[in-house]
Amino acid sequence: MSTHLDEKTLRDMSVLAALPYEPNQSMETLAALNEVLELVSALEAVEVDNVPPLAHPLERFQSLTPDQVTETVDSEALSQNAPNFEDGLYFVPRVIE
């Protein structure tokens, strides 16, 4: 596939992925990503027009769970790894909507 990432796309992808975009490293990152895309470009040779996508190796169906409260929530244990947890809340820098 002659699809190659450019710096702008890399920046856009970084924003979507919440990863830092560092212009001084961008050439190196781009080269690495484009190498992967090159590898992937082999897929272009495959005739797939009439092939439905396969999302999951097991073509099976979901089983449904009865509507019952089965969890007792130990919020102390669940929040033990939180970097900023006070008064029952997880805190982040102020969000402006």
């Binding site: 006070e86 809340l89 982040v92 820098p93 969000v95």
Partner: peptide, 10 residues
């Protein structure tokens, strides 16, 4: 709840 922070209740 807390100045310059947003609290998250899930």
């Amino acid at each position: 709840f807390k100045p310059s922070f947003t609290g998250i209740d899930l």
